[in-house]
Simulated scan of single mutants.
Amino acid sequence: MYKLSVLLFFISINISFSQTLNEISLREINPNRLLSDEPDYTYFKDISGDLNKFLGNWVFDDGTNRLEINVVKNTQVPDDFNIEVFGNGHRYEDKLTVTYKFYQNSQLIYDIESNTSADYSTSINSNIIQNNQNIIEANSLDTWNIVQFPYYEPVSIANACGRSKIGQLSIVYDSTLVPDNNGNLQSGSLIWILETRDADYTLLTEKCSVSNPIYDDTDFLLPSNIRLLRD
């Protein structure tokens, strides 16, 4: 009986690994189409390679504020929601992850690479890519050049339960030739557009374990509209 159970276990494993994935292009998804709602073995895939143009190290520096970001593409990432709730990872997706360091007057303010906040994830990741929406600063000939991310920053008030503001970050790839810091023309830059709104206090309260929570009402520190050059 034991041998039969072991045999059936390995057969189920082989069937699981041999299951064909249903690949869906990132161009077909939107913020309202969640991977967790899709059937098992769905794969939101960057079939057209649209995310590749965003990859690498980028920097903005105006003498006071300096933002250094690194963009990587993670492929066939298991859906965290299904792993947490159902204990399986049979849905997958390609996504961009952005880490950054932010300085003001040469002082390091944020290093998201080393942030380990348990209450509010300040990592930036998404695969919601959109076609050109006539961003004024961008080349109108560029296509599938906008990725939208949910955005947070670490709290700046001691013992704060969370921020009272949340953000939506749009990163726009612009192929227009622009001068680098040495005056040489380079192809490609990123436009960083950060929009903020008030958070849902009901959701904030659910995340807090204290009776009279403190919220961080300060504005985000990162600039709202800048252009980053390839580093």
Rank of each mutant, 00 (worst) to 15 (best):
Y41I: 06
F9C: 15
V6Q: 10
L229E: 00
L4G: 07
I128Q: 08
L4P: 06
S126P: 11
A118R: 13
E206W: 00
R230K: 15
N212H: 13
L108Q: 11
I124V: 12
D174C: 11
Q148L: 09
P31E: 06
A118L: 14
P39S: 12
I214G: 10
T205F: 07
E137F: 02
D180N: 15
N125I: 03
L194Y: 09
K95Y: 01
I47G: 07
D231I: 07
V98Q: 03
G87C: 14
G188T: 13
Q130E: 09
L35T: 15
V178R: 01
N131A: 08
V98M: 03
I146P: 02
T97W: 04
I157H: 08
A158Q: 11
S12K: 05
L4F: 02
A199D: 11
W58D: 02
Y152R: 13
G49D: 10
N57I: 03
S170R: 02
I129V: 09
Y100A: 06
F44S: 01
D142C: 07
Q168F: 05
W192E: 00
P154M: 06
Q148T: 14
P154F: 06
N74A: 07
G188N: 14
I24D: 00
V77Y: 01
L26K: 01
I129G: 04
F44L: 00
T122Q: 04
D219L: 13
V210D: 03
W58G: 05
T20H: 09
E23C: 13
F220V: 15
N145P: 11
P179W: 13
N225I: 08
S117K: 06
L228P: 04
T143G: 06
K45S: 11
T205C: 09
N127F: 02
I13F: 12
P179M: 04
G49N: 13
T202V: 14
S164V: 14
V147T: 10
G89H: 02
L4T: 10
P31R: 09
L185Y: 14
D219I: 06
S25D: 14
N22P: 13
S121Q: 15
F60K: 00
R66W: 01
S126H: 03
I191H: 04
T99S: 05
C161P: 10
T99C: 02
E153C: 04
L96N: 00
P78Y: 01
I146M: 01
F17L: 06
